[in-house]
Nucleic acid binder design. Structure first.
Length: 191
DNA sequence: TAGTTGATCGTCT
DNA sequence: GACGATCAACTAA
């Protein structure tokens, strides 16, 4: 079963599946691993989704095959990364909102100078992209291959998935498309 | 501690 | 020419 195959399902089903998945990032001789603890589902029927208005040059990767990366740049200074899901051409993706660093903490701190605690390194979409050095260069990358890889994992027995409303956007705020692991300290919080 | 705003640019209208 | 799936610094109280 390939990653692409496992993720060829609707975004709302792929989102909980991606919780607990392990990200392996190799960069400049360093290997960093992290676990996904918070995600958000987007599909083409969602007014807040970049794919809502159809395929454009910018959102091209979002319409590609599942298991690839969709990276976009926003607010003039932040990148956000998504895992493309669903059938090719469908325009569904799951935004990675927060991860829990497992190894390579030193490298992450290096990427985010001035950050004190471990939690603030990766508890937000813009933050984790900076920490993992994810930019437009990773747009469209196949996530079953190094240097950026995702492997699905079972959650621990004592971990629970919470589904709730979204954060940080103005359109379709009330959709319950956000999923996170209950009581995980690395989950981003409402402001 | 809650609320506001500046930074900064690719993409779309 | 306006805006955004954000973040952090600042202000007021």
């Amino acid at each position: 079963m390939t990653l692409q195959h496992e993720l060829t399902i609707p975004a709302v089903e792929a989102a909980p599946l991606l919780l607990g998945a392990i990200i392996t990032r190799q960069l400049a001789g360093n290997t960093v691993t992290a676990r996904i603890v918070e995600v958000e589902a987007y599909d083409q029927l969602d007014p807040a989704s970049h794919s809502f208005k159809g395929e454009t040059k910018r959102t091209l990767a979002m319409f590609g095959p599942a298991g690839h990366m969709y990276v976009y740049f926003t607010y003039g200074m932040h990148y956000c990364c998504n895992v493309v899901v669903g059938a090719e051409g469908q325009g569904s993706a799951v935004l990675i909102r927060a991860v829990e660093p497992l190894s390579g903490l030193g490298f992450l701190r290096e990427r985010r100078p001035g950050i004190v605690g471990d939690i603030q390194l990766t508890n937000g979409p813009g933050k984790l992209c900076q920490a993992l050095s994810i930019t437009l260069a990773e747009n469209g990358h196949d996530l079953s291959m190094p240097p950026l890889k995702i492997e699905l994992q079972q959650l621990q027995k004592n971990e629970t998935i919470i589904q709730t409303t979204r954060i940080g956007i103005s359109k379709a705020k009330d959709k319950k498309s956000r999923f996170y692991i209950k009581a995980n300290p690395y989950v981003s919080l409402p402001r």
